[in-house]
């Protein structure tokens, strides 16, 4: 029997598989399809202080390696999440959930985190300073080490639960951002969010996405995500959550060898709603194939 358990900021995960924010809603659509207690945990839809409609459609485009999205943080707002989504989730998910938080000001991040920190179901706060699809918030905090550190420190001062800062790859030196978050007290970092891209409609000779640009995800970004996880693992001593194009149990193992303590899976859920369930199920056999008995032992194993 192999051991798939990992520890994420003091909370035990049965396995390192975590559906990524924005691809799993608040869990209920997937709970209709399978028992989502099989997951390590999941990161719920990016939540802001007020309800947000998001960007105009089309919000979705495709490319050879996956998809682009420009959803723009559609969510019902933190109060509705606490009042409606979390009680509904309690019926179908019996593990701590990762609360993904976004905002347009330091004060908003702090307030949303403070409210979710008070919810017993929430295990971790994942602070998204990396959404490429909104203006005046999100990624603008994630592209400067000082702004990233400032948000991290402000949230840390307001909450008790572990704070994970989600980083954007759309920067020159992601390790410097990760270090700034660590220095400001972050308990972990997750990376990468989507890569900024676009598609053009040949018939209309215009951007395919109404937002012009969108975030690329899917298997096409996996090598880039893996490289960044590898670099950040060397730069910080807090846990790193590997995100970006993971689509198989073997990809999970690669991410962990690069330095990931756990792994978030995004686009794969949209192609196949059963993807995470199937990856969890495939993990023990994949571990056996590569002679891995205890999964946590391989974290960072590819570093010399």
């Amino acid at each position: 029997m192999v051991n798939t358990a990992v520890d994420l900021c003091g909370i035990r995960l049965d396995n390192p598989v975590i559906p990524a924010s924005g691809t799993f809603g608040y869990g209920r659509e997937f709970a209709e399809l399978y028992d989502i207690d099989c997951l390590g945990t999941f990161s719920f839809k990016g939540t802001t202080l007020s309800p947000r409609f998001g960007n105009p459609t089309p919000r979705i485009a495709e490319y050879g390696g996956g998809l682009l999205n420009a959803v723009g943080l559609q969510n019902p707002g933190v109060d509705a999440v606490i009042r409606e989504e979390l009680p509904a989730l309690a019926e179908v998910f019996h593990k701590p959930v990762m609360a993904n938080v976004s905002g347009f000001s330091k004060e908003e991040y702090v307030e949303v985190c403070r409210r979710l920190d008070a919810c017993p179901q929430v295990g971790w706060l994942e602070v998204n300073i990396s959404c490429p699809n909104v203006h005046g918030g999100g990624a603008s905090f994630g592209t400067s080490p000082s702004a990233a550190g400032e948000i991290t420190a402000a949230v840390k001062a307001a909450v008790k639960k572990p704070v994970i800062v989600k980083l954007t790859p759309n920067v020159g030196d992601i390790a410097a951002i990760a270090r700034a978050c660590e220095d400001a007290g972050a308990d972990a970092v997750s990376l990468i969010n989507t890569l900024l891209g676009m598609r053009i409609d040949l018939k209309k000779r215009a951007p395919l996405l109404k937002n012009t640009t969108g975030g690329m995800s899917g298997p096409g970004i996996f090598p880039l995500a893996l490289r960044m996880v590898y670099q950040v693992y060397e730069a910080v001593s807090i846990p790193v959550i590997g995100v970006g194009g993971v689509s198989s149990a073997e990809d999970v193992l690669e991410m962990m060898l690069a330095g990931a303590t756990s792994v978030e899976i995004g686009a794969a859920n949209l192609r196949d709603p059963y993807a995470c369930r199937d990856i969890v199920a495939a993990l023990p056999a994949a571990m056996e194939r590569y002679g891995i008995e205890t999964l946590r032992d391989i974290i960072g194993g590819a570093h010399g």
Binding site: G22, T23, F24, G25, E29, F30, K45, F53, G54, T57, P58, R59, I60, A61, L67, N69, V71, Q74, N269, L270, R271, P273
Partner: peptide, 14 residues
Amino acid sequence: ERMGCGFGACMGCT
């Protein structure tokens, strides 16, 4: 509408 997932997870077609 252009859809991502088709089952309500991605908010792509709102």
